[in-house]
Amino acid sequence: MVEHRPIGSIVSHLVLIAGVAIVALPLYVGFVASTLSFDQVTAVPMQMTPGTHLL
């Protein structure tokens, strides 16, 4: 970046964080689902923290 504007830098980080959140969300949910039991996966809503059934 050529100028040093704190607001521009904050906006850049916000856009990137939003982009990463959208891009990584399906991967995260897929991973969490892989650590849950069948009953937990089919519960509505599914829990969003990893469980204990990974192995």
Binding site: M1, G8, S9, H13, L16, G19, V20, A24
Partner: peptide, 18 residues
């Protein structure tokens, strides 16, 4: 935006390539 930021640029790039 990834080209603009300096701090954490590598983290953003890695996560976006997944």
């Amino acid at each position: 935006f990834a080209d603009r930021v300096v701090r954490g640029a590598r983290v953003y790039k890695t996560l976006l390539i997944w």
